[in-house]
């Protein structure tokens, strides 16, 4: 009964205190608006995912509520497993390369590059509209007159029979390269900000002890930087899993599904095939994957925060 009493007291406090009314008055608009524009559509989408809903078929032929049939059909579809694989490879390789490249460059630039103009220019790729990034690179990768294609051929790294986006083996690496171009600057700038905010005392102590640079890096820099590293990885991984714009601009999932990431696969099912029910079901699987990944990463993050 102790618990009930607490709830009562809390309720009583809530009604009586004007401070409490004030704080809820400020917060309620956010909660209501978000509930209306995100929670409601998601519930609506769940309803679609459990229905036979296809805009390409006559409405008399549709079966309405079909339970988990859409999910069963997807799990049997090899195209879905291909998309899952492509999204996985894209996320791991792109974010992995961006992170190590970003960390290396941030360590080199630390304390040296402070110019505002330079810093703004470094940010250029990530502030461009992703669809423009995608189209700009489509042009660079173009099979006859693309600048990157031309350079690759001049260096004998690519034959005249093929182009970066034309072959199954090179399309995904070419796509990943665009993501690396777009997002490495973000990693550089965030890690640089993290490095510059580190306390100086441990480094001075290490200097007195004549510790090697590698030991300082491993025993001081990395542990102190870990919260920043985790945050930036969370943000990048979430973005990479849901990547769409650059894929749509560069390949639309092709050639032969080589770059068919999950968002593209869902988009095709929904707006080319008009199979809204199935597309919603896949989007819930994507949402589920993102939730699991984020819970793991956020747990990791809070454990690191407690430790430090």
């Amino acid at each position: 009964m102790q618990n009930d009493f607490n709830v009562f007291r809390r309720l009583n406090f809530w009604v009586s205190s004007s401070e409490n009314k004030f704080k809820w008055l400020l917060l309620l608009p956010t909660i209501i608006v978000l509930a209306l524009i995100t929670v409601y559509p998601v519930i609506y989408a769940l309803n679609l995912a459990l229905s036979d809903y296809n805009l390409a078929r006559a409405s008399e032929t549709l079966q309405g509520y079909i339970g988990l049939d859409n999910f069963r059909a997807i799990l049997r579809n090899p195209q879905f497993w291909n998309s899952l694989k492509v999204t996985g490879i894209f996320t791991v390789v792109a974010v992995g390369v961006e992170f190590f490249l970003g960390l290396a460059i941030a360590l080199i630039l630390q304390g040296i590059v402070t110019n505002r103009v330079v810093r703004s220019l470094v940010l250029l790729p990530m502030i461009m509209a992703p669809i423009v990034v995608g189209l700009a690179w489509t042009y660079l990768y173009q099979s006859e007159f693309g600048l990157v294609t031309y350079i690759l051929r001049s260096l004998h790294l690519m034959s005249y029979q093929t182009a970066p986006l034309a072959s199954v083996s090179s399309a995904l690496p070419a796509l990943i390269a665009v993501d690396i171009w777009e997002w490495t600057p973000f990693l550089i700038m965030v890690l640089l900000a993290g490095l510059e905010a580190l306390p100086t005392a441990p480094y001075e102590a290490a200097k007195i002890d004549k510790a090697s640079p590698f030991l300082v890096f491993r025993k001081i820099t990395i542990p102190l930087l870990r919260p920043v590293i985790l945050i930036v990885l969370v943000l990048r991984i979430m973005d990479a899993i849901r990547v769409f714009d650059i894929v749509y601009a560069l390949t639309e999932g092709g050639p032969a599904s080589a770059t068919d990431v999950l968002s593209m696969f869902i988009y095709r099912n929904a707006f080319y095939l008009w199979d809204i029910g199935k597309a919603s079901a896949i989007s819930f699987i994507l949402l589920y994957i993102i939730m699991i990944v984020s819970v793991i990463l956020v747990n990791l993050l809070s454990r690191v925060k407690e430790a430090s």
């Binding site: 809390r10 559509p41 919603s280 949402l287 984020s294």
Partner: peptide, 28 residues
Amino acid sequence: IFGDKHISFWILSTRMFPPIVLVIPFFI
């Protein structure tokens, strides 16, 4: 605020939503 951690996390999670999940119900 009573449950403020949950409220904050919920707000953050809507930010992490893949747009492809929302665009289908919004379209219909």
